[in-house]
């Protein structure tokens, strides 16, 4: 009896204070918001290596990319997670747009086909996430249905999220507009390319996870 009680209490306390292992931190957003640039920035800062290739042509990331065991430290705070870079979510994919961006027809068609699969995978992976950074381009209209659907689905699944309004180094950037579109969430303006507010983003991640 005493043994069972002891075992029960030990299990209860270990469950209460156990740190969740293999937290999955996802990067979600529409194409060309800068998800992979942020992933590269995080990996460079904490692992000393890059995660993926970036490009000005949309849908450069067409497969889920996972970087395991990223360890972040700040003072006495520590955070360990698997970083998941996802393909940009879109409702339309037209290979002719890739041709306009300079790709050959065969390459453009193949990219479009892979991009559609990437969107499907990104949506499927939503259920696996423990926390998400929603990456939006602060130079673009934040009121798109893709943005609302991503955030709404994270909310419906009770997944904690941080919205980063990326590309604040560009003249057309308007972080206030992103903030006014999502007043119920923390919105942080950053430039993943130049490194603006990256330390603040890390601080927010400690609070988020």
């Amino acid at each position: 009896m005493a043994f069972s009680l002891k075992l029960f209490l030990r299990k209860l306390f270990s469950n209460l204070f156990k740190k969740k292992k293999h937290i999955k931190l996802g990067l979600y957003g529409p194409p060309n918001g800068g998800k992979t640039t942020i992933a590269n920035r995080i990996c460079q800062d904490w692992l000393g290596e890059e995660m993926g290739k970036v490009s000005n042509v949309e849908h450069e990331t067409r497969e889920i990319q996972v970087k395991e065991e990223v360890n972040m430290k700040s003072g006495n705070k520590e955070l360990s997670f698997n970083l998941v870079d996802t393909p940009g979510i879109a409702t339309r994919i037209d290979y002719e747009n890739f041709i306009k961006s300079g790709l050959k027809e065969k390459e453009a068609k193949s990219r479009a086909k892979e991009a559609t699969k990437g969107v499907i995978e990104a949506i499927k992976w939503l259920d696996n996430m423990d926390a998400v950074i929603v990456v939006l381009d602060s130079t673009k209209d934040p009121y798109t249905q893709v943005n609302l659907t991503i955030i709404g689905n994270l909310q419906a699944r009770d997944i904690p999220l941080l919205i980063v309004a990326n590309k604040i180094d560009l003249k057309k950037s308007n972080v206030e507009r992103v903030k006014s579109a999502f007043p119920q969430y923390k919105v942080l303006g950053i430039s993943a390319k130049r490194g603006d507010n990256i330390e603040e983003m890390y601080e927010e991640l400690f609070n988020l996870v």
């Binding site: 994919i93 559609t116 969107v119 949506i123 419906a156």
Partner: peptide, 17 residues
């Protein structure tokens, strides 16, 4: 639609492209 249905609509759309 429900939020989950919106995501499913995007998925179904991608399958049909």
């Amino acid at each position: 639609l429900r939020k989950e249905e919106e995501a499913e609509l995007i998925k179904a759309t991608m399958e049909e492209i």
